[in-house]
Each structure stands twice: as C-alpha cells, then as structure tokens.
C-alpha cells in the first residue's frame, strides 16, 4: 500500500511525464530517471509469426494479437508455411486439432489415426470455444483488422503452396519477404514464433 501511495504522489508531482511501467519513475526527468535500458521498458509492439495450421497454434496467435491491441500494443501478424491456411479463404474455416503426437489430447496415440476422429475432436473443441465467445477464424481476422492490427502473408510460403493474393483473406495488409518483415521492427517490439 505504501508503495502505491508513493508512486501516486510521484505521479502527481510529475504530471504529464512518461513513466516507466516497471519502476514507476519518469523516463525523462533528471531527478528520477529510470535507466533507459530498464527491462521494464514498455512493450510497444508484438510481431506474431504463425507457422502452423492446427487450431491451437492459430488461436494462440489470434488471442495474443487481440489481447495486445486491447492493451494499446501494436500488432503485426505474419502467416507463413502451414500457418497460411489460417488466412486462406478455402481453408480457414476447416482448421483441425492435431491428434497424432499431441499428448494434450489425453487419448491413446492410435485413436488419432482413425478416420473422422480429428473432425470429431475439432467439432467438440469449436463448440466449447463458441460457448466461451471465442470467434471463428474469419471473424477473428476481422476483429484484428478492425482493432488496428496488421495481417501479412509470407511471400516464399505462398510461392511454395502456389497461392495467389486472391486466394487469401481479402483484407490482408500485404505479402512480405522475411527482410521486409524485420524492417517493421521498432524498439519495444517482441517477436513471437508459433
């Protein structure tokens, strides 16, 4: 409680100064300046690379992206390799849960190889997600876009899978090479590869 009071008093005294989120000191005033390399320097941007097509990977990317925008953090999503399925018009609503090699499914490995099991598990998971107000893929893309996030496709992966821009979600911000992706880095950015 004491700390909170102190930081509030401090805040009042230095009204309008930009504060370090970690140490609650002003960034620019000489008397109490926080180290500019402070590990608590605020997170300003997330660059999220989605490289897999299974539902759990794709949704991890969406939820982190949406959560970042909700906190005022900028977001670039970059879809590469099998992750392109998530922005492919034909495939985005048919993503599946991976059963084989996924111990998190809590079932014998052999069950995963039977036809129809993946669809069944996916159906059950989608139903539960809907109950929790987790949107389907196309709506999630709309939400990320409407909230000011950017969506990019990987140029090389598109060439590999023979995909054209018109095969993808209409509202993508562009097709990038890996170099162009890195150019979008600014101080305060974290890059996450899923």
């Amino acid at each position: 409680m004491e700390d909170t009071k102190q930081s509030q008093d401090h805040k009042r005294e230095h009204d309008g100064h930009e504060m370090c989120h970690k140490c609650n000191q002003c960034k620019d005033c000489s008397s109490c300046r926080c180290d500019s390399n402070h590990e608590g320097a605020p997170l300003k941007k997330m660059m999220i690379v989605v490289s897999k097509a299974n539902i759990d990977s794709v949704y991890a990317g969406f939820i982190m992206a949406n959560g970042a925008r909700s906190e005022g953090i900028k977001v670039d999503m970059f879809f590469t390799f099998f992750g392109l399925d998530a922005i492919s018009k034909k495939r985005m609503e048919h993503l599946k849960v991976a059963l084989a090699g996924n111990p998190g499914m809590h079932m014998p490995e052999v069950v995963g190889v039977f036809p129809g099991m993946e669809s069944l598990a996916t159906h059950m998971m989608m139903k539960r997600m809907d109950e929790l107000d987790i949107p389907p893929v196309s709506e999630f893309l709309d939400i990320i876009k409407a909230s000011g996030g950017s969506i990019y496709a990987c140029k090389l992966a598109m060439e590999m899978f023979n995909l054209k821009k018109e095969d993808l979600y209409d509202d993508i911000d562009g097709v990038l090479t890996v170099g162009q992706f890195y150019e979008r880095y600014h101080p305060g950015t974290q890059i996450i590869f899923i």
């Binding site: 925008r69 909700s70 906190e71 005022g72 709309d142 939400i143 409407a146 909230s147």
Partner: peptide, 11 residues
C-alpha cells in the same frame, strides 16, 4: 470494433 478503438484509444 473499429469505432470503439477510436472512441477510447489506447485500450
């Protein structure tokens, strides 16, 4: 959602 972000910027 777009308007919501414009009305209340930064979160």
């Amino acid at each position: 959602i777009k308007e919501f972000y414009q009305l209340f910027p930064g979160g």
